[in-house]
Design a protein around this nucleic acid. Structure first.
Lengths: 118, 118, 118, 118
DNA sequence: GTGGTCTAGACCACG
DNA sequence: GTGGTCTAGACCACG
């Protein structure tokens, strides 16, 4: 799951991993995350790196930490991630339009993606 | 145009700038780009940094360089940029769906973007 | 090892040197290469020049770089170098034939090379 | 025939072109080459570039120039080109062996090339 | 400590 | 004049 060769910093990959667990429902609002040491062992990375990732997630209000208790998925986490994703979507759509795509073409692609899933 | 504070490397910002000029039609297929020294002066960065950006654009077949002559926008550049943008769009759409958006919601957003433009 | 007078750029000479170390078994698949600073000191060239060589080797999938860790010989490196060498061999053979050599003459030369080695 | 985008200098490409004409028999020992201006026009390059190429060919004894008469293919040109090609062949063979090819494999490739021609 | 990025400025080949 | 290469040396993020 962690790609040491990627130019994406490891701590960001850890952040992404946590976000993905939330998106996929493996982790739900209020759930306790694994401890820093445990997650570090699971992922094969340095505990300091996980600590850094958790701090970043905290700043983005994705998780909150209770000293002595552990870290927990924030309550509003799903809305937050959805909003984030929609903003990225809008940007991507605008850029595609600038590159010559038209709205109906983009709608067709959405349909295609929908059918792939089904 | 160049944000020295940004975490995005300057040479990538230069790449983006060139791509934007192509998207906006300020630069067309086959056109000659400013020389490295000239562009460096315009942007207030080091010529080496522009050289690095140009090499990156070359590797992505966005431009080609003729030593002693200058750098030129590639012929297939528009298709290339459009395809790039569509791939990013697809990824963004998938992620949004995973985050809980449904297709009709995304289509509505496309409409909204379209109306903003008009 | 580095010829500053040569028309071959220093960074290409560095690339060749690394390839030779791989061919000669001084460096094996997966091995860590010296860091850019260390190799620069050994060769008496600028670290930037080594960096440029490493990037070129990376693009050719001869090595891969893990930022913060170092650069490593790729796993498939031997096959890659052998194929490269065979393509060059074929081209050289074709050119020799065009220049008037015949196949049996070329075979004789191969024998001679073989005997020299023994 | 001339690739302006290549990193190979144009004057070297012109040299190669002349050598190829000799190899292919389009030009024979003692034949007069086209004049600088004519060849420049044919190839779409600057006359100065052709001049530079001719000077290089002269230094390599591939052609000789008689002021006021023109440039001519040298008499020993075929042997010269063949020897050049054989040296390159030997180097390529050695390198292939170092990369793990064995002599019989190289002989097989020679056969294959021979059959392709037939 | 490692590689990534960047600057300032030099010299060179090519055309 | 153009891009290619190279140096010397700086600062930064990452781990």
């Amino acid at each position: 799951m962690i790609d040491l060769q990627s130019r994406v910093p490891i701590y960001e990959q850890v952040c992404e991993g946590v976000k993905n667990m939330l998106l996929d429902g493996e982790l739900k609002a209020g759930d306790r995350l694994p401890g820093v040491r445990e997650m570090a062992k699971q992922l094969g990375v340095n505990p300091n790196t996980v600590t850094k990732a958790f701090r970043s997630l905290e700043q983005n209000k994705i998780i909150y930490t209770v000293p002595g208790k552990g870290s927990f998925a924030a309550d509003i986490v799903n809305d937050k991630l959805k909003n984030e994703a929609l903003l990225v979507f809008d940007e991507a759509a605008k850029k595609a339009v600038r590159a010559g795509a038209d709205i109906s073409e983009l709608k067709d692609r959405l349909e295609a993606l929908d059918n792939d899933r089904a």
